[in-house]
């Protein structure tokens, strides 16, 4: 199947600013490699889950794909078009087809605009509809996401967090896009509201034939809704594959520790706990070699010097670890 979205060797680096004194005294540039040489594909109609802890670069990757921040290197191809090469006008037109839903239902809606203005904005920007027609389309999508048409003239602060997230979803969908980056859309919500929004996103996907890149730090959410999952650590994808396969048989030690850390409700579902040493290293000074080696209980000498290359470990399942061939697993190694 031809993928709808292909990301090839995408990198996004941030350079720290140097003042005059630092430049004169020759303090070197510090570069944060927020996203480093990431490649992935998303098939039409698929949900690719992107998982990782804070600071791993998953949101930066999602935004770089949409060119909300400009990638430094690499290519993003959407439906045969190289998005990274588009001029501003072509990019604007492409934005109608690629959308984003944000995490924070409070910061993502302009407090001074009504629901009708917020949700109707894409119609206006892309000249899709105006006046009564635009209002009718806006009303329809607002009702579809579970709000009432008579709430169109209200302001964001008159809604609860869950309702505001629905407004954000309506805004992303009103221009009939094909691909949505969902950037932690349920992380800020209460459990019962979270379930409502997940159900809504899945319904809308089915009805409108959408494709999602679903970014989350919650493995349960990804496990429930994604078809495939990519695991990120310090700007790189360390493991990627079908979600069942990765959850049942994680191959990278980071994925293994991540899965074992999730609190389980069912007592029989509890996995042996793998305790990671220490905290996430500063992305300003990432470790050499394999970036996980400072916290990895399985690290050997080669891990400190040489970055591992992603290998196939099963059908459509890749992982990047020097110790894959040995078949060493963290679960067995720690004997927990």
């Amino acid at each position: 199947m031809k993928p709808l979205l292909t990301v090839e060797h995408l990198s996004k680096h941030y350079e720290s600013r140097r003042g005059l004194v630092e430049r004169l005294t020759g303090v070197p540039h510090t570069v944060v490699r927020a996203v480093n040489d990431v490649s992935l594909t998303v098939a039409k109609g698929e949900i690719l889950g992107l998982i990782g802890e804070s600071g791993c670069g998953k949101s930066t990757l999602g935004r770089a794909i949409l060119r909300l921040n400009e990638p430094n290197a690499g290519k993003v191809v959407f439906d045969g078009t190289d998005v990274t090469a588009l001029d501003p006008l072509a990019l604007k037109n492409m934005r109608r087809r690629m959308q984003i839903i944000f995490q924070d239902p409070y910061a993502s809606l302009n407090p001074r605009r009504t629901v009708a203005e917020i949700v109707g904005l894409p119609l206006k920007l892309h000249g899709l509809a105006s006046g009564e027609e635009a209002r009718a389309i806006t009303a329809r999508i607002v009702e579809r996401v579970g709000l009432k048409a008579n709430q169109l003239d209200r302001y964001p602060h008159q809604f609860s967090g869950g309702q505001r997230q629905r407004i954000g979803i309506a805004r992303a969908l009103v221009s009939n896009p094909e691909f949505i980056v969902c950037d932690e859309p349920v992380s800020a919500l209460d459990v019962s509201i979270q379930a409502q929004i997940i159900a809504l996103l899945l319904e809308l996907k089915r009805e409108m034939g959408l494709t999602y890149l679903f970014i989350s730090h919650d493995i349960s959410v990804i496990g429930y809704l994604a078809d495939r999952v990519a695991v990120m650590y310090l700007g790189e994808i360390v493991e990627m594959g079908p979600v069942d396969d990765v959850l049942a048989n994680p191959r990278h030690p980071y994925t293994q520790s991540l899965l074992s850390a999730v609190p389980e409700i069912e007592p029989h579902g509890r996995k042996p706990r793998v305790r990671l040493k220490g905290d996430l290293p500063s992305p300003l000074h990432p470790p050499s070699g394999c970036k996980f080696h400072t916290r990895c209980p399985l690290a050997i000498d080669i891990c400190r010097t040489l970055a591992p290359v992603s290998e196939n470990v099963g059908p459509g399942h890749q992982a990047a670890c020097h110790r894959l061939a040995e078949g060493v697993s963290l679960m067995s190694e720690t004997g927990a």
């Binding site: 604007k92 924070d104 904005l121 892309h126």
Partner: peptide
């Protein structure tokens, strides 16, 4: 994020400055 949202929707810098930020 609402400024970023406007960018993601294809809004021009003029629109963002006058309609999203200024108010």
């Amino acid at each position: 994020e609402y400024v970023e949202a406007a960018r993601a929707l294809g809004a021009s810098p003029r629109h963002i400055m006058l309609k999203e930020i200024l108010p």
